[in-house]
């Protein structure tokens, strides 16, 4: 659906984004995570050419975005919705007028616009606020208006620019749920950028990690989140788990025996594996850290345990045979 080929961007002599290749599939939720200034905003804006790459090619549904003329660009932009951290609603227009705006730009007839606006407002759950002005709404409601506006012209792609970063956790969850629904029901391809791993974990299928303008890691969210390879990714994951890296290292250093991290995915998460393996191999285990959560819809568990006594090798093999990923922790 969206393809980057050697895309890069220079600002006043410095390279904000180093040449990268990336492919986003139709119907997936693709996340880009990075600190501020990592280049994720530039990457996102090169998709609808709000920012023009200094070089390389961006294709959306086969069309070369980098080569379009003004008219072609406007047509393309009507097929790509976009929502923003600060919502960017028109303060002088009501909720209904805001949602109607892209349809008016496209020159649709009045009656068709009114019907479409009503449908959209109902879809995002703010039909009751149609005649209010944005200043009268809460952050979550404003973002719903933003989403309705972005969906007005029935786009195939939705770009989310830190769409939940200005919202409280509860509102963030409800907006992410809405995005998930839209992705499933409308087969909408969603590209979102964020600095929060939690957002990636909850809605994304795949993720790319940007660090100082470099694409350092990408893959399925489960792989990247559970087995981060790059230092930056690792730190994002620790942040999402609210773990202090130094404290954790100190705790592990005090443990006796072999320290391993077990990662369970899917149904294995709920199996009473630990006790069974311990009894069979005669090892003692001491749980040092653990969590059970979900990546999008897949449950996972991660346990860090210290094994001592008995047949540790057999125990480790038994875990691996049960489909559990075993990692030695130094």
């Amino acid at each position: 659906m969206i393809e980057f080929q050697g895309v890069y961007k220079d600002y006043a002599g410095t390279r904000a984004l180093h040449p990268l290749d990336l492919s986003i599939e139709r119907g997936e939720v693709f996340g880009v995570i990075g600190r501020s200034g990592a280049g994720k905003s530039t990457l996102l804006r090169s998709i609808n050419r709000i920012e023009r790459p200094s070089g390389g090619r961006v294709r959306v549904g086969g069309a070369d975005v980098t080569a379009l003329d003004d008219e072609g660009l406007r047509t393309l932009r009507r097929r790509i919705g976009m929502i923003f951290q600060h919502f960017n609603l028109l303060a002088s227009k009501t909720v209904a007028q805001n949602v109607a705006f892209p349809l008016r730009l496209a020159g649709q007839p009045r009656a068709a616009i009114a019907a479409r606006v009503r449908e959209l407002l109902e879809r995002v759950g703010i039909a009751a606020h149609a005649d209010k002005y944005p200043a009268q709404l809460s952050g979550g409601q404003k973002q719903r208006v933003g989403i309705a506006r972005a969906l007005a012209s029935a786009p195939e792609v939705l770009l989310c620019d830190e769409a939940t970063s200005a919202l409280d956790p509860e509102t963030t969850a409800s907006v992410l749920n809405l995005l998930g629904e839209l992705n499933r029901e409308l087969k909408l391809t969603i590209v979102l950028i964020t600095h929060e791993m939690d957002v990636i974990r909850r809605v994304c299928d795949r993720v790319a990690v940007l660090d100082a303008g470099h694409l350092v890691e990408s893959g399925s969210v489960a792989d990247v989140f559970l087995h981060p390879r790059h230092e930056t990714t690792r730190r994002f994951v620790l942040e999402a788990e609210h773990v202090d890296d130094r404290e954790r290292r100190a705790d592990l250093a005090r443990a006796h025996g072999r320290v391993v991290r077990l990662t369970f995915r899917g149904e294995a998460t709920y199996a009473p594996l630990l006790g069974r393996v311990a009894r069979a191999s005669g090892v003692d285990y001491n749980i040092l850290a653990g969590r059970i959560d979900r990546i999008k819809d897949t449950p996972y568990g991660q346990l860090t345990i210290a094994l001592s006594g008995g047949d540790v090798e057999t125990a480790l093999r038994a875990f691996a045979d049960a489909g559990v990923h075993v990692e030695e922790v130094a």
Partner: peptide, 20 residues
Amino acid sequence: GVIEASQAMGASTRQIVFGV
């Protein structure tokens, strides 16, 4: 941001001046 949002919706400069 509001101007950027209008551009992202495919508004022409004329439409941005008079509509936004």
